[in-house]
Design a protein around this nucleic acid. Structure first.
Lengths: 212, 212
DNA sequence: GTCTATAAATGGATAGAC
DNA sequence: GTCTATCCATTTATAGAC
């Protein structure tokens, strides 16, 4: 029998103290960062005592790492989001582009990225983890796709890693760079389709075989 | 008569205590971020007492803001770097592209960007400042250039802001995104010319008038 | 498991001498 | 201007009762 809080919870026991702590840690870490967020504030936000926090998590560092690892998995590229590599280039690239843009435009994911970047000096593995599970994963998928299409003669891609990076930059860059610095969205979700299609068309214009 | 330390100093009085403090603050803030860096550590790194730090700077926040403002100005787009808007598209875009890439590949500027992004929650104006003086400035220059070329009939650019963002993403994105998360360079300065030329060619392929 | 209370250390900022 | 010494608040982490 589902209660209201089940809808927003992520744990098996949504009302348990430990899940309250996890939620509080997530909110505070993502909003203020690692250093500013104190274990006191997490305990207060979760509505438990500080001793309870320490009974579930060894220390602040472990709580932070677990929190961010969960965020990486939640916002990484899920298997069901993987695009069909047998689809024709327009379709494949456009759907990948829309996926990239929707990720970049998600304010929750922006908070995750900012926190990861901000704490990179103290937690360098976290940045690599996020990259490989998220945007890096997508780039590799595009790289492999381009390599195959080149081999099949459907596209002409002399440098697949560079072309994949350029496609990603073309579709995500316009929004990602200003967004990460200013916080202001330049385009909205309504523009996703248009931008992805423009980028795809532009990309294919120079990667189609000359004859045929 | 120049001493050795003059070569690395930026102040009018390179040996002065205040410049030593500035240099120490720069090193520590850029390497570890705002929160982790203590006034004690800055004083120690500068080789002065903490009281001396406070006699030159009101508090930690002011020292940080002054430090990062200096970094923004140093790494922003300088007037002499501004590209010639009367040059033909290949030349203008390629040189702007190379400028963008060289900025993104500079490890010192990467440290600045990471610090700014990391402290965005506490110092939001700093991100806007960096954007407008650096990459945002370049994007505006490209936008204006494309608008003029479109009006002159040299290029076909229905949406200058989007096209400018895409060009910037195409040339800087491949390096910027992985670099900011993993710290690993994908390409080196030797690739700058090739990448900028590739991006320029790709961009122009879809923005040249059909009959022409 | 959960609480109140506290230990131990650190950091921002200042007092007062020279 | 510069130093040593110090105050005060905060923070991580733990002790011990229930």
């Amino acid at each position: 029998m589902a209660t209201e809080s089940d809808l927003h919870a992520d744990d098996a026991y949504p009302q348990s103290k430990v899940s309250q702590i996890r939620e509080a840690a997530r909110r505070l870490f993502l909003e203020h960062g690692y250093e500013i967020t104190s274990m006191d504030s997490i305990a207060a936000e979760a509505g438990v005592s500080k001793r309870t926090v320490y009974s579930h998590f060894r220390n602040k560092e472990m709580l932070f790492i677990e929190t961010m690892e969960t965020m990486c998995e939640r916002f990484g590229v899920a298997p069901h989001e993987t695009n069909d590599p047998t689809a024709p280039p327009e379709k494949f690239l456009c759907s990948v582009g829309k996926l990239m843009l929707s990720k970049v435009m998600d304010p929750r994911l922006q908070a995750v990225m900012r926190t990861i970047i901000g704490e990179l000096a103290a937690f360098p593995e976290m940045g690599s983890r996020f990259w490989s599970i998220g945007p890096g994963n997508m780039r590799i998928q595009v790289t492999e796709y381009l390599r195959e299409q080149d081999a099949a003669g459907v596209l002409v891609v002399p440098d697949p890693p560079l072309s994949a990076g350029m496609f990603q930059g073309m579709v995500a860059g316009p929004q990602f760079m200003p967004m990460i610095f200013t916080g202001d969205p330049v385009w909205t979700v309504d523009d996703i389709d248009r931008i992805a299609r423009t980028a795809t068309a532009q990309f294919l214009a120079t990667h189609r075989p000359k004859d045929g």
